[in-house]
Simulated assay, not measured.
Amino acid sequence: MAFCKDFNARTQKYKPDTPMAVTITAYKDNTFDFIVKSPAATWYLKKAAGIEGGSSRPGHLEAATLSVKHIYEIAKIKQSDPFCQYMPLESICKSIIATANSMGIKVVNHLED
């Protein structure tokens, strides 16, 4: 019961349809520890681009286009992850841009109306 209460408290900021990774460590004395990570960068990229999946041929076919502002917003969210909290925001942005490129999502400075 304690796990459910703790889990609900830590995940209440997420919408119900948001996938997240959780690492649970259970100890012999019936105590536990768990880490809740934000969704994968690919999920955020697909959500921001409004697509179901990436390109079938990245580098040849574009699936969508996103602006650097979108990348920055995703990086700010990812920075709250336990494994990314000490990384510079610029490094997280570069990683997300690389992920976007591998999905066939083009990153531009400004989206044209």
Rank of each mutant, 00 (worst) to 15 (best):
1 M>T: 12
3 F>Y: 13
5 K>P: 02
6 D>R: 10
7 F>L: 14
7 F>H: 04
8 N>V: 03
9 A>W: 04
10 R>M: 13
13 K>V: 14
14 Y>K: 03
14 Y>A: 09
14 Y>F: 15
15 K>L: 02
15 K>I: 04
16 P>N: 07
19 P>L: 04
19 P>K: 07
21 A>L: 06
21 A>F: 05
22 V>Y: 04
22 V>N: 06
24 I>R: 04
26 A>H: 04
27 Y>M: 04
27 Y>I: 01
28 K>D: 07
29 D>I: 06
30 N>R: 12
30 N>Y: 11
31 T>Y: 04
31 T>W: 01
32 F>E: 08
32 F>T: 11
33 D>E: 14
33 D>L: 09
34 F>H: 11
35 I>P: 09
36 V>Y: 02
36 V>I: 11
38 S>D: 05
38 S>W: 06
42 T>L: 05
42 T>S: 07
42 T>Y: 02
43 W>H: 08
43 W>T: 08
45 L>M: 08
45 L>S: 09
46 K>A: 11
49 A>S: 06
56 S>N: 09
60 H>V: 13
61 L>Y: 09
62 E>Y: 07
62 E>A: 11
64 A>H: 00
66 L>D: 01
67 S>E: 12
69 K>Y: 05
69 K>F: 04
69 K>I: 06
72 Y>R: 11
73 E>P: 02
82 P>I: 15
83 F>Y: 13
85 Q>E: 09
88 P>H: 06
88 P>K: 08
90 E>T: 11
91 S>N: 02
92 I>V: 05
96 I>H: 03
96 I>Q: 01
97 I>V: 15
97 I>W: 04
98 A>T: 13
99 T>N: 12
100 A>H: 00
101 N>A: 15
106 K>C: 05
107 V>I: 15
108 V>F: 00
110 H>R: 14
111 L>V: 10
112 E>R: 06
112 E>F: 01
